[in-house]
Amino acid sequence: MMELLLILILLTDVALCSTGRLRVLVRTAAWQGFFLGLLALCKGFTFHAATLAAATIAVKAVIFPYILNRAIRKSGTLTEPLPYVSYNLSIVLCALMLGLCVLAADRLPSGQWRMAASIGFFTMFTGFFLIITRRTAFSQVIGYLALEGGIYAFGLSLWQEMQVEVEMGLLLDVFAAIFIMGIVIYRISSEFEHADTARLDFLNDSEEYD
């Protein structure tokens, strides 16, 4: 069961790298959140685990997608324009990252949860990758989400008993961040008529733009 969930998470990571349609991205990220939530239950069905799963699913699979979809609708941006790295190359790099993560996780003494660790790493790096290579703020928010998801999965693999408080705190941080970003994106797009973060650099006060 856990293996299947991890594979599904892996597939969502690959999917995140391979498309620029924002709605598809949001939907994929929502599914990823759902699978991550279920992953918490794989350690045994305790009250803590159930709370964690329920909270994760509620926040990542329901609330965030809702906020993001609303922002997308309002900004009118439907696709990612010209990422820094083409989607085809992204898939290849994604596969390479996966290989590296598996190699790295091989060195960890985490026993049967090694696969969770490697997928966690991989999800983290997918997040980094999205933040680095995509232009719109939406994709970057999704990258941020994936980053947090990776930390969560990695944390699950390391601790015998997940410290619910830690994870909840983390979730709260991200929640606040996404909430603020949702508002900010909305503002950016209504103010500048686009959500391309690369083009925000004219806001800096160096003399080139005066």
Binding site: E3, L6, I7, L10, L11, V14, S18, Y87, N88, I91, V92, C94, A95, L98, G99, V102, M115, S118
Partner: peptide, 18 residues
Amino acid sequence: VPAMLLAALALSFAAFVT
């Protein structure tokens, strides 16, 4: 089409590492 076949590559690579 290359994206689709690259996705196939990612799938089989995932199969390989898992």
